[in-house]
């Protein structure tokens, strides 16, 4: 039984289909990554799943509750970290979490313990009495993650949790996120545009223009590229090509003096290559395809890093600025 189930979901704004008939399932206890460029419809999908906006058509269930008909039951099953910060900056970290606990009807006798645990989990316990105003961007994000866990949700939504953070804060937060499914028994639904983050997800859906264009585990998606690329230098390319053909039944391409071959299991391939070609091999290089390669191949554009020149860059700056203030 999947914890999230979406069938043919559509959300229109006038003529624009922000979400255009998407379907997917998320298995309990996994990290599900939702990848896509600006305006792809990621936040809109989250808003529908979190019962903040209605859908135009289609179905969505979380923890067996209908997102379109049972908002209250769905809300109790989920925690949300929105794309833009939703902390009260004039309250302390501790007060923000206590507020949340009351809001979600956590039993009074349990509030203190849960708030302490959550603060410890994200390593903010020592700073609990500081006003959130005085927090750094990374601390705020971690606090929001902690807050999302206070009422013990079954699913935690994270909309671009690491956007606008410096590399160290990102790594720190990412450590927290990957620990969560086991430690807190929660399923993670997250959007991101950092490729190395997508790699850690158990499953990824790539969305573009409101449609899911590919779905699967990171390894499955990379097979779209045709597997890993191995490049090797040899003493005798012609002889090596023939030998490779005999060994793997693959045609190795000769480009500028180097041999290239693709393989689904590049890592397992290398020892065999060396065994087969013996001391004719001078060097071997294994190149793993990235999710970005997949995205590039499917849509003809990079997710964000390369197109970050114009508007999207500014948007990020503004967001990062807002987050800091």
């Amino acid at each position: 039984m999947p914890i999230i189930k979406v069938e043919n979901l559509v959300k229109r704004y006038g003529n624009l289909a922000a979400v255009d008939g998407i379907s997917f399932e998320v298995k309990e206890g996994t990290i599900f990554g939702f990848l896509g460029p600006n305006g792809a419809g990621k936040t809109t999908t989250i808003n529908v799943l979190c019962t903040l906006i209605s859908a135009t058509s289609g179905k969505a269930f979380i923890n067996d509750h209908d997102c379109l008909k049972e908002p209250s039951a769905v809300r109790k099953s989920i925690g949300i970290v929105f794309q833009d910060s939703t902390l009260d900056k004039d309250l302390t970290a501790y007060e923000n979490l206590v507020f949340h606990a009351y809001l979600y009807g956590v039993k009074k006798s349990e509030i203190k313990g849960r708030v302490h645990d959550a603060l410890n989990f994200v390593e903010l316990y020592d700073r609990r009495d500081d006003l959130v105003k005085k927090y750094s961007g990374g601390m705020k994000r971690r606090l929001e993650v902690a807050r999302g866990l206070i009422h013990r949700p079954r699913v935690l939504f994270l909309d671009e949790p690491t956007l606008g953070l410096d590399p160290q804060s990102r790594a720190n937060l990412w450590g927290v996120i990957t620990e969560m499914p086991k430690k807190h028994n929660v399923t993670i639904f997250m959007t991101t545009h950092y490729m190395e983050e997508a790699e850690v997800c158990d499953k990824i859906a790539i969305i573009d223009n409101g449609k899911i264009i590919a779905e699967g585990s990171p390894d499955e998606l990379k097979k779209i590229i045709g597997g890993d690329v191995i490049s090797l230098k040899t003493r005798d390319n012609k002889w090596s090509q023939q030998e490779i053909k005999k060994l793997f039944d693959i045609d190795a391409e000769n480009k500028e003096g180097e041999l290239y071959l693709t393989s689904n299991r590049g890592d397992a391939c290398i020892p065999e290559l060396i065994r087969g070609l013996g001391d004719k091999v001078l060097s071997v290089k294994l190149q793993r395809p990235t999710i970005n390669d997949v995205f590039l191949k499917l849509t003809g554009k990079a997710i964000r890093e390369e197109d970050a020149s114009g508007m999207s860059n500014i948007k990020e700056e503004v967001r990062a600025y807002r987050r800091r203030h």
């Binding site: 039951a73 809300r75 949300i80 929105f82 939703t86 009807g105």
Partner: peptide, 16 residues
């Protein structure tokens, strides 16, 4: 203010 600074979303998203 709470709408502008986002906090109101925390309230609106709660099962309340």
């Amino acid at each position: 203010w709470d709408k502008e600074f986002g906090f109101f979303k925390e309230i609106l998203a709660a099962p309340v």
